[in-house]
Design a protein around this nucleic acid. Structure first.
Lengths: 158, 158
DNA sequence: CTCATTGCAAAGCGTTTGCACCAGT
DNA sequence: ACTGGTGCAAACGCTTTGCAATGAG
């Protein structure tokens, strides 16, 4: 559901490369490869998954570099990190208007995104009621996704 | 804000002891001590904090036992575990109607609870719109709490 | 008396870091 | 050339686990 068109992906990587130049940050083979994987992936990738994809592409990159680059990408605002209580983090491209929430499937681990205008407007109001200055939030619903529900139905029907 | 009256706390511990008997689970000194700490604590305690409190009470309990007992308490539904992205978990007593959300202060680490009826009713509806069967959810707002805001004001006024 | 729990220390797991080597600019 | 990035392996912090000793029912 990270609706990123091919154009937007290319553009995102372009922005990353330009930003690196502006910041006089060396654009290494590894950094570029990692950025391509994470910024074009429409899943919420774990470090393990990123390393796997790099291998598949024939890129050899050390784990430490992956972590260091992810921190760079996160600090620069190109990537957002998430922690779904699985014991490890997942990373996704950060688009500007792209503040969204997550549906996390407890069966297959898939993460589906959603936005809900009413919900989003509500949160700062709630914070305000508690004299709390909000910075960011996290709304996650855990349960069973459409596909796994279908699987359950088939089991029963059999 | 975990508004638990002294009576409710005693009752909760009583329920735990009864449950252990019913389940033919040995009620050891350690388990009882841990339950007393966690079920009467109105904070979101880390394992480290639990161990510290046990020491203060003169109870000597191994860390492994704390983890094992917390899992027992969680599976039995007496305790709820939370992961606020700090790299460790926190535990709080689980009260029946006590489904609530959290305001997490990024300055002092304090966690304040809140409930919001409208928000709570909204979430299953959202899940439904995505053909997703919800089981549990997590709503967290990160920012600056009332007290830390006051601190900032004093800094400026000075 | 029996069987589950405890405590210790070792292992696990994701993540971070020190340091010699290597590569962008 | 200079500066900073990379890779390996060791260190880390939280959590889990193996196993002999202990204690609850």
């Amino acid at each position: 559901m990270t609706r990123l068109s091919p154009d937007e992906r290319t553009e995102l990587i372009g922005r990353f490369r330009r930003w690196m130049q502006e910041q006089r940050q060396p654009l290494t083979r590894q950094r570029d490869a990692i950025a391509r994987i994470v910024l074009t992936g429409d899943e919420h990738l774990s470090v393990e998954a990123i390393v796997r994809r790099l291998r598949e592409k024939g890129e050899t990159v050390g784990t430490a570099t992956v972590y260091r680059t992810l921190e760079l990408l996160t600090r620069a605002g190109f990537v957002r990190a998430h922690e779904f209580g699985e014991g490890f983090r997942r990373f996704e491209p950060a688009m500007e208007g792209g503040d969204h929430e997550h549906l996390v499937c407890l069966r297959c681990g898939k993460v589906v995104e959603f936005t809900h205008e009413h919900l989003t407007r509500m949160l700062p109001v709630i914070a305000d009621e508690h004299a709390f200055r909000p910075e960011r939030h996290r709304v996650e619903i855990f349960g069973t996704c459409r596909e796994c529900l279908r699987g359950e139905l088939e089991q029963i029907g059999r």
